[in-house]
Design a binder for these strands. Structure first.
Lengths: 153, 153
DNA sequence: GTGCATCCTCTAGCGACTAGAGGATCAAGC
DNA sequence: GCTTGATCCTCTAGTCGCTAGAGGATGCAC
């Protein structure tokens, strides 16, 4: 069982990555172009499973695709210093911590506002009132940023 | 000074929402179509400032655009029950808490991995090793989801 | 009248996929 | 051999919430 040769569907089942996503990863060069059968179907081996699992894992951990590309590059060169891998992970960690901080500020604000809702008419609604008047906020600088990456199930 | 009549640039300065974003909000119907001068420039009044500030505030708090639309609708009808507003805020709060939980799991994993990095060669790198082998993870179910909304700057 | 700031509309791009059209191929059952 | 349904192929467009830029008109100060 050294080279069982998988179809894209089988690779998808083994790694939990959807078929169109595998093709997408190939198209952006995250995975090498797969070998093909005579009828143009993609064929994969065990190494492809490893590589895709690595990609999925890194994406699950929230690394942006460009970081995944760099990490793959590093994984392919075990003799190099791992300083870059360490730096990428540390940067990503800092980014995650920043986002947690922002979300916690939001949570505090939302929790406060919903707790104060008297469940009456909109005219007296604390939720609407606070939205209408920023100065009622605890932390007046709640900004979040876009430009980020998430994984869903 | 009841109706000073603002240009889109002035409205932008007053609310901190960029000019193209204001036009974008109008195009998706979050803001009503502005009145125009003879030369087709948009003209705004104080009510527009209020409405846009409301939108910006809700977006800063991370409400998705569709939720903002509903909240605006509610704010326009003060006699209605605020149950919907309360529900939207509570749902959003739950979503924020879910994301915080996911990010905290990620943080733990990333912190653990980077702390274990011996800063040597890639061959011995804990970061690469963990990415290559999911079973080395503390929490094997770190999934994040896309499909969400953030604010930046 | 001469700049330059501001405005207009329109289109395309971001990240990381996801969904769907329209068509070819395969494997299994009869 | 034939049919059926799953799987595969490529390609395009859509998602979200903007942002950037082209190409052109207008307004206002000097």
């Amino acid at each position: 069982m050294s080279d069982p040769s998988l179809s894209i569907g089988a690779l998808s089942r083994e790694t939990g990555v959807k078929v169109p996503t595998i093709r997408f990863y190939e198209s952006i060069g995250l995975l090498p172009a797969a070998d093909r059968t005579a009828s143009d179907r993609r064929v994969y081996d065990r190494r492809a499973v490893q590589r895709l699992a690595f990609v999925r894992h890194a994406r699950d951990l929230g690394f942006p695709v460009e970081a995944v590309r760099s990490l793959l590059e590093l994984a392919d060169h075990p003799e190099r210093s791992c300083a870059d891998a360490d730096r990428l992970a540390a940067e990503h960690l800092a980014e995650v911590e920043r986002k947690i901080g922002q979300l916690e500020a939001l949570r505090a604000e939302l929790a406060r506002v919903t707790a104060q809702c008297a469940r009456g008419k909109v005219a007296d609604c604390r939720v609407i009132e606070v939205l209408s008047d920023h100065s009622l906020c605890l932390t007046p600088d709640h900004h979040q940023d876009r430009h980020h990456q998430d994984r869903h199930h």
